[in-house]
Every structure is written in structure tokens, then in C-alpha cells.
């Protein structure tokens, strides 16, 4: 087995073995999707009649966030804390293959999330009209942006701090990221801040890609900006031990 395949299989296996990780990547998104589409307590933006039409893209965005940001940050933070990254540095694996394996792991988990969440949403009555290119482009940009912030945290902070911060940010973005609560419900200043974060921009583009409204140029600019800046800063600051 090649080193890259072996590394990817090992990373995936360790991810799947981790119960909290599964809860975060699949349990919570499925729960949110099912609960709030059936129990209509959340406000809906103007022009949207069915909660599932607003929720499904938001929860898909949340799923990408949970994998490319929260899960990656926590796993890499502990790898670094336990000296795994340091030890791997003295093997022929090399950084490019380690990064490729981590990327492949994130992509594989995202595909698994799609494979679960899309059928669940369809069963709940979601009727999207999909524009594949914007959806794919947004998922790639968001994955790069979230992973960049994840590596920035994992490469500079102690493992336990990464654990706490990554979970905290996940909850904050769940509330303020236009994922399940429409941005227009937020007070003005908060909304202005939320519009500059990658989650709201990502959710806006995803909704447009699934036939709900149009994505603004600002959203692409914000998401693209994060996708360039976060990995660049992470690459400069990352410490392997």
C-alpha cells in the first residue's frame, strides 16, 4: 500500500473511531435538519415558504464547517500536542503527503455527509434546482477557508485550547452564520459582522446554487478572501511541535 493511501486510511479510521466526531459531523446536522423542518419555530427569510428549503443548504454548510474546521482543527491540534506531527517529520512520509492525506480525509467525510444529508433533506420535502458549478465552487472555497482557519489554530495553540475554541466557534457560527437562523433576524451591528464571516457567505452561495435567490458578488468576495488569507496565514504561523 502506498504511503499516501495508508496515511489516508489511518486518518479516516481514527476519525470514524471517534464518537464525538461522528456526533458533530452527522448526528447534529441530521438532528437540526429533521427537528426544525418538522417543528416550525425558527423564523424564515422573506420569500421562503418551506423551512426545509432554507434549512437544507444551511445544514449542508454546517456539515462542511464541522468537518473542514472543527473536526480538522481538533484532530490536528491533538496530533501536534502528542508529538505525532513531530515524529512523522522524521519519516519518509513528508509534509506534502501528510497534507494530501488530511485533505483526502476531509473530502471523504464531506462526501459521506452529503450522501446522508441530501437523501434525508429530500425525504423531508426539499425540492432543489441545482446549479452544480456554483455549489461545487462554494464547497471547495469554503473547505479551503475553514481548513485554513483550523490549521491556523491547530498549529499555534495547545490541544485542549483548540478543542474548546473549535467547539465554541462552531456554536457561534451555527447561531450567527446564516445556517439555521436567517441573517436578517440579527441586530444590525451583529449582522454586519456576520456578513464578513465565511459561513454566511458560504450559505448564501449554497442557497443560490440550490435555487433559492441569487448570490451576491460580495459573498463570493468574502468567501474567496477567507480561502486565500486563512491558509496563507496558517502556512506562515504553523509550528509542528
Amino acid at each position: 500500500m502506498s504511503a499516501l493511501v495508508a496515511q489516508t486510511v489511518a486518518e479516516l479510521r481514527l476519525n470514524l473511531r471517534n464518537g464525538e466526531q461522528l456526533l458533530l459531523t452527522l448526528g447534529i446536522p441530521v438532528l437540526l435538519l429533521t427537528f426544525f423542518s418538522q417543528v416550525e419555530v425558527l423564523p424564515l427569510p422573506d420569500g421562503v415558504d418551506e423551512p426545509i428549503d432554507f434549512l437544507a443548504p444551511g445544514v449542508l454548510a454546517l456539515a462542511v464547517l464541522s468537518t473542514a474546521f472543527t473536526g480538522l482543527a481538533i484532530a490536528t491540534g491533538f496530533d501536534r500536542q502528542y508529538g505525532v506531527l513531530k515524529r512523522l517529520g522524521a519519516t519518509p512520509l513528508g509534509r506534502p503527503r501528510l497534507l494530501a492525506a488530511k485533505t483526502a480525509t476531509v473530502v471523504a467525510i464531506e462526501l459521506a455527509q452529503l450522501a446522508v444529508l441530501v437523501p434525508v433533506a429530500l425525504l423531508l420535502g426539499w425540492e432543489p434546482s441545482i446549479s452544480p458549478l456554483p455549489v461545487l465552487g462554494a464547497v471547495v472555497l469554503a473547505t479551503v477557508a475553514f481548513a485554513g482557519v483550523a490549521m491556523l489554530m491547530a498549529g499555534t495553540l495547545p490541544g485542549l485550547v483548540v478543542l474548546a475554541a473549535a467547539n465554541g466557534i462552531y456554536v457561534v457560527l451555527l447561531l450567527f452564520g446564516d445556517l439555521v437562523i436567517p441573517l436578517e433576524e440579527l441586530p444590525g451591528a451583529l449582522r454586519a459582522i456576520a456578513e464578513l464571516l465565511p459561513t454566511a457567505a458560504f450559505a448564501e452561495i449554497l442557497r443560490a446554487g440550490f435555487g433559492d435567490g441569487e448570490a451576491s458578488g460580495r459573498a463570493w468576495l468574502v468567501l474567496g478572501g477567507w480561502a486565500v488569507a486563512a491558509p496563507a496565514v496558517a502556512a506562515r504561523t504553523f509550528r509542528w511541535e
Binding site: 496515511q7 471517534n18 522524521a90 519519516t91
Partner: peptide, 27 residues
């Protein structure tokens, strides 16, 4: 070269045989 750090250096969740199989794939 082979390296044994003073402590750590192994994925906390990995099992011994898996770790050896993984490292074997590097060489």
C-alpha cells in the same frame, strides 16, 4: 534513520498493529 522521541509521537487513538502497518507503508 529511525527515531524514538522522549515521549509521544503516536496517534492517541491508533492501535499498535495499525501503527506498525502505517509506518511500514512509509518505507
Amino acid at each position: 534513520i529511525g527515531v524514538m522521541l522522549q515521549s509521544g509521537g503516536v496517534y492517541p487513538g491508533i492501535r499498535p498493529l495499525e501503527a506498525l502497518q502505517l509506518f511500514a507503508a512509509y518505507y
